[in-house]
Amino acid sequence: MTPVSQVFDVYIDLNITLAIATLVWVSAKLMMARFGNKLDFPVQLGLLNGLFAIILLSPIAAAAYQCMLSQQMVPAILSVNLADYAVSQYLRGGIAIPAEDFQALLGFRARLSESVLTLAPGVGTGLALGLLAGFAWFSGKLVTSFVRLYRMLATCHDWRRNGRVRLLLSDHALVPFSARGLLNHYVVIPSDLLGEPEDLKLVVKHELQHLRQGDVAWEIGLELLRPLFFWNPFFYVWKSEVERLRELACDQRVAEKAHVDLRSYCMCLLRAAQAGLRKRGHQTGGDRSNGIAAVALLEVQDRLLRRSPGQKLRRRVEALLETNRIRPHRGMTLLAVLPMIAVIFLTALAIQKPADWSQDRLMLSAIVNLERLETINSFGQQPLR
């Protein structure tokens, strides 16, 4: 196996693992909602970010486990492989399809990967060109967003500075937002907020909380991965969930730690939304303030196939007024999340390619050859009347 094919296999494994993990997360969320349990938003956000880090590390964990199996450091009975399990079930009679069709089904992924990597005419070339075109398109949008953000920051005016955190004033930003560079963190505030001192205090607290939570770093990471996962719908479901919990967690933390008046906070969000929509109506170039590396106070742009800004604002206000959310002990949280981690790890193991030809696979190959031989021999026989 060439290094290119190994990298492509890891890429496919990551997409499959992300899909399974997303389904598990959504199922767990629906189950909790059905039983009336509501976790703190910061807890949910921490779990989501932690699970995503585990997803990215799952190929390494799976490779390490396979290495331990090959070195007999782990008993062979603990081997987990979906293809080997399917072959075992077929030989036991649990799967009733022709052996040749079953073998072709098992080798579908390998054939598809080979056709893409070798640019085989037809499907292989089409998929390869589609992946390359999508990667180039979204990479270009990524670079454009970085340039746009740099230009936005360059037009801002320095207001205050505390260590690596710089507070900037902008005459063009639709809404307040936070961003970061390699060394510094930035909080950009529309200059007209200077005339609203109470709103200004709440906005600064909100954006600084985003920086404390590391929300900007996570947003950068997800955007950097978008060109790789652009075709995977589960990536967008996961990213949308992160964006939703990020704002709700930040609102909850500010309301708790800063002891702000909830009514004043909600009215501040409403006024910021009104100001952003009003500015958007006067701008011809659209919103250029909250591109990559920027986490805005709220969204004032309509996005295709997503909830409108008005719906998101309503959800944030309703969430702020909820008082029955629980914050479990860390030990209980870890205990509850262990099944999710196990599912991610088992998925990463199950979708690995078998290391070599096992006895069951040799038996399957023998059955396929016998069926082919029987088919060849039957051509010369007279049909029964």
Rank of each mutant, 00 (worst) to 15 (best):
L224K: 05
Q71I: 00
T347H: 10
W231R: 05
R111H: 15
L313E: 14
R34Y: 13
L320S: 06
L320G: 07
V368Y: 10
G46S: 07
R280H: 15
F235W: 14
M267S: 01
A154I: 00
H282E: 14
I367D: 08
S308H: 08
R361I: 07
F345T: 09
R330N: 11
S88L: 07
Q44M: 13
Q103L: 09
A104W: 14
H329Q: 15
R278T: 14
S358A: 02
Q352K: 06
L169Y: 07
V317G: 11
L82K: 07
Q44T: 11
R288E: 14
N37K: 12
E223V: 03
E100K: 05
L305R: 00
L182D: 15
P354H: 12
L194N: 12
L47F: 08
G163W: 04
R34S: 05
F135N: 06
Q352T: 04
N184D: 15
G195W: 11
R385C: 13
A319W: 09
L346T: 00
L183V: 12
I220V: 10
F52R: 05
V24G: 01
Q213I: 08
E100H: 06
H210G: 04
S145W: 10
V4W: 08
L384I: 13
R314W: 11
R34A: 02
V80M: 08
D251R: 07
L297F: 08
E322R: 15
R315M: 10
L222P: 00
D356P: 04
L106C: 08
S115L: 06
G126L: 06
P59I: 02
W25F: 09
K353V: 02
V147I: 10
E256R: 04
L248H: 02
G285N: 06
H185L: 09
V175C: 03
R148Y: 10
Q66I: 00
C250I: 08
R244S: 04
F52I: 01
L82R: 02
L305D: 12
D40I: 05
R212L: 02
L132F: 05
I54H: 00
D84E: 13
L364R: 08
G214Q: 06
L153E: 13
P227A: 03
F146V: 12
Q103Y: 13
T2M: 03
P121M: 05
R280Q: 15
E247D: 14
